[in-house]
Nucleic acid binder design. Structure first.
Lengths: 352, 352
DNA sequence: TTGTACGCGTTATCAG
DNA sequence: CTGATAACGCGTACAA
């Protein structure tokens, strides 16, 4: 009863037209010396049979599946809760689609699996190249990628200490400088005891934002207090708890700088829950300027990062690289902007 | 100078081992009758050469690329701004990955291109099956998919008026009923003039939520006012403008129900900008319970939809279907829950 | 202008 | 236990 669903192949088309497969192929690829009549004949058969070339067979010859992988450096569950990823993906997706590439999402639980699998997919030819959304301070994957001569672009940057000889394709912002400017701004407002809510320092972006924070204290001749850094997971709950613990212990804190709007928002909730006001009692500044930043109350002062545009650029770079257009520059640093909204007042209130 | 990067094939392994390719293949696939020594020999060569089977070649034989497509029914730019998509994707991604499938994101600008391309990808064998994230009231794509005997699962439902004979695989919530309950709740609180902020009625989900809204008025014997429905795009700006216009014209409105938290939040902003209070002057209820719902102020009362779990179920269904495990039921309706927070008070205040 | 035949990298079916 | 060899669907050099 059940018919084997055999899809129509180029042979079927050839058979119907009483021509050889090569003729069909030539028509499909618009070769010169093919008379209009045969073309018509073949094309009508193609239409009628609804023939579509087989991807696997074509790719076997071309040596490319036209797939681009996006490595999330965390599980699917954890990755997409953060608007950052959705937003880069928007940018990436808009250009891959226009250039005829397909987007493949890669989620891995740990660095080891991530490295092994990514390399495997590249070697197997399933992927033409990959985009790395996050880089680690000690990044095995990047090391392997270079070794493999794989095509890839890094959204972020690599630590100098890794000492790669080859210049990598990267798209980034000046995290150190931007973070520095935020603290500078707070210091000018009169703040000195500024808590920094960070993510795991294993990631370069967190390390960089922390570096800018520290640098600002040094250059302003203010003693740095090492107990003012909070490192948490992305769980808002754990951020809230850490903030509450910190504020209870340190009554001298007047400002909080979070490496990410999500953490800043969690901080605001924590502050409010203690009966304190933002920014009157504690000023808060975030990072990235997600859409939510202007939806919460008070509206979040934050650093605008052009995530979407960066995603586009990342994909552009990768595709150019894949297609051997090596003319482009390898590093793109995007400018950011401190967006002054409401969560950080214009002067230091006295916390009584 | 430039070496042609030829990847290592099964032949290379065979050559190194002085065996035939079939022997290598047998070892790799753990065939029985292969002596331990040859196995060792081959495996060590595989390791040394770092041999990985070519995806295209394997797929050509297997007839499957193990790719699952996710159709967004809108451009990449528009799709991922909405937390709904990120969240289903989380669910989908977590199961596809575990079951050895790869996730391919499909963004199309319009329905026509979407249909043509999706069908093409399916026929070409690039995709084993697709997940539809949104269904239209008149959905050409679904029609074609059925005609093609394609494997697919719909996140949502199909209109009865389409009269498909075959039962489709769908994952959904009871949008009509849930919407009904929201209005019922508002009516019990004393509200009668309730604005409904809807998205384009071309999508089934919007049509359904609207239907529940209307039904509640009918069953409560309250006159329905057709001027109380607002239809807007997903732009928060346009939502705000429509809400302001509506509230200026209709001073009798006491509540707003939005088909989506994002719209509800935009509504709250609009209300506040007019100097009115939520919920004292206008009560607001949203839909979906995105993470932001509990971050805004006042915290949003909304309908909790288990988007992530639904994503998992959707992917499960599709993979089972692809792998011919037809034993499962075809329709999954997930329960929801009205989450009472702050944006809708417990009784009707008097709007003076 | 067209057809034949080979190759892409694998897997599977045969003999041996 | 192992090695030819055909087949998967397509592109293309070569011959006709």
């Amino acid at each position: 009863m059940e018919m084997k669903k055999k899809s129509v192949s180029i042979k079927d088309v050839a058979k119907v037209c009483n021509v050889s497969v090569s003729t069909v192929s030539r028509v499909l690829h618009k070769y010169p010396n093919v008379p209009p009549e045969t073309e018509k004949l073949v094309m009508s058969a193609v239409k009628k049979l609804n023939y579509i070339p087989n991807t696997a067979a074509q790719s076997l010859i071309k040596g490319s599946l036209k797939n681009i992988g996006v490595v999330f450096t965390r599980s699917a569950e954890d990755a997409l809760v953060n608007p950052f990823f959705a937003d880069v993906l928007r940018g990436i997706g808009s250009v891959t689609q226009n250039k005829g590439y397909y987007l493949q999402l890669l989620f891995y639980k740990n660095a080891k699996e991530e490295k092994k699998e990514t390399i495997r997919l590249l070697r197997s030819g399933r992927l033409d190249g990959v985009i790395l959304l996050v880089s680690r301070v000690y990044d095995d994957l990047i090391y392997s990628l270079i070794e493999e001569h794989a095509k890839f672009v890094l959204s972020g940057r690599v630590m100098e200490t890794m000492g790669y000889k080859k210049e990598l394709y990267t798209v980034n912002t000046d995290n150190v400088g931007d973070s520095y400017k935020v603290i500078q701004h707070l210091i000018q407002l009169g703040h000195e005891k500024i808590v920094f809510i960070n993510g795991p320092r294993e990631f370069v972006v967190n390390e960089d934002r922390y570096a800018g924070y520290r640098k600002a204290f040094i250059e302003n001749g203010i003693d740095y207090d090492p107990h003012l850094e909070i490192q948490t997971s992305h769980s808002p709950q754990s951020v809230r708890e850490s903030v509450i613990a910190m504020l209870k212990k340190r009554k001298d804190v007047t400002a909080i700088f979070a490496k990410d709007d999500l953490k800043a928002i969690a901080a605001i909730q924590a502050i409010k829950s203690m009966g304190l006001r933002v920014p009157e009692d504690i000023a808060v500044i975030g990072f990235n300027d997600y859409d939510i930043a202007s939806m919460v109350e008070p509206k979040l002062t934050t650093v605008r990062v052009p995530i979407y545009e960066m995603g586009k650029r990342t994909a552009d770079m990768l595709i150019n690289q894949i297609e051997q257009k090596e003319s482009q520059e390898k590093t793109a640093i995007f400018p950011t902007e401190l967006i002054l909204r409401e969560s950080c007042g214009h002067h230091l209130y006295n916390r009584s």
